[in-house]
Computed example of a mutant assay.
Amino acid sequence: MTDRALHEALRQKAEQEPLHLPSNFAYTTMRRIQQEQRVRERQERVTAAVTIAVCCLLGIGGIIYFYGEALLRGCRAMVQESEGFSMVPGIAFCFLFLATLNYFLHRHFSKL
């Protein structure tokens, strides 16, 4: 019986004082939605950046762990022998080419 009386009292109050929304209700609601979307997008970007950084660090760590000794020996041999320096221009050219290709592909596909 108490529930019924409570419901009746609430219904009567709602009939006496109708709910009024502010005049700019739609604007403030859309603004709040846009703000929440910006926060969500920022969280996604931060999560993506952290994930990429962790994957890169794990990859570099794995390479060093598995191939570190061989890479160190190769670098020492390249420094000690004069023939080792002949590979540097080729490696520099490949690096420059791949970096330029990465730049142009990123510009092209980031617009899509």
Rank of each mutant, 00 (worst) to 15 (best):
L6K: 11
M78K: 00
E8F: 14
L57P: 02
Q12E: 13
G84R: 02
I63H: 00
L19S: 04
V54E: 00
L96Q: 07
M1Y: 10
C56R: 15
F109M: 01
S86R: 15
F93A: 15
C56H: 13
T29H: 10
T100D: 05
R42L: 10
Q37R: 15
L19H: 00
K13T: 13
G59V: 02
A92S: 09
A9T: 09
N102G: 13
E44I: 02
G74I: 00
E15S: 06
Q12G: 02
E44G: 02
L105M: 11
Q37F: 07
F95R: 14
Y65K: 01
H7Y: 13
I91D: 04
C55S: 15
H20N: 11
L10V: 11
F97D: 00
F104V: 09
L98R: 01
H20L: 14
R42H: 08
A92F: 02
F66W: 13
V79I: 06
N24M: 01
L112Y: 13
Y67H: 12
M87I: 15
F97P: 08
R107D: 12
A48M: 08
G68K: 02
H108C: 12
F109T: 00
T29S: 03
A53K: 07
L21S: 02
I52N: 11
F25W: 02
L72N: 10
L101K: 09
L10S: 05
Y103N: 02
Q37V: 09
T29M: 08
H108R: 15
I63V: 15
T51A: 13
A92Q: 03
Q35W: 12
I33S: 03
P18S: 01
L19W: 02
Q16V: 11
C55A: 15
I64N: 08
R31H: 01
L98A: 05
T28N: 07
L96K: 03
E15Y: 11
Y27F: 14
Q43W: 01
S82Y: 03
A53T: 10
N24R: 01
V46S: 05
I64W: 07
A53Y: 05
L72R: 12
I60E: 05
A92P: 04
L98D: 01
A48R: 11
Y67D: 12
L71S: 06
L57H: 10
I64D: 07
L101Y: 04
E83I: 12
Y103M: 08
E36Q: 13
A70T: 07
R42M: 07
F95E: 14
A49Q: 13
F66T: 08
G68W: 01
A9Q: 08
R45P: 01
E44V: 06
P22Y: 06
R11K: 07
G68M: 04
R76A: 10
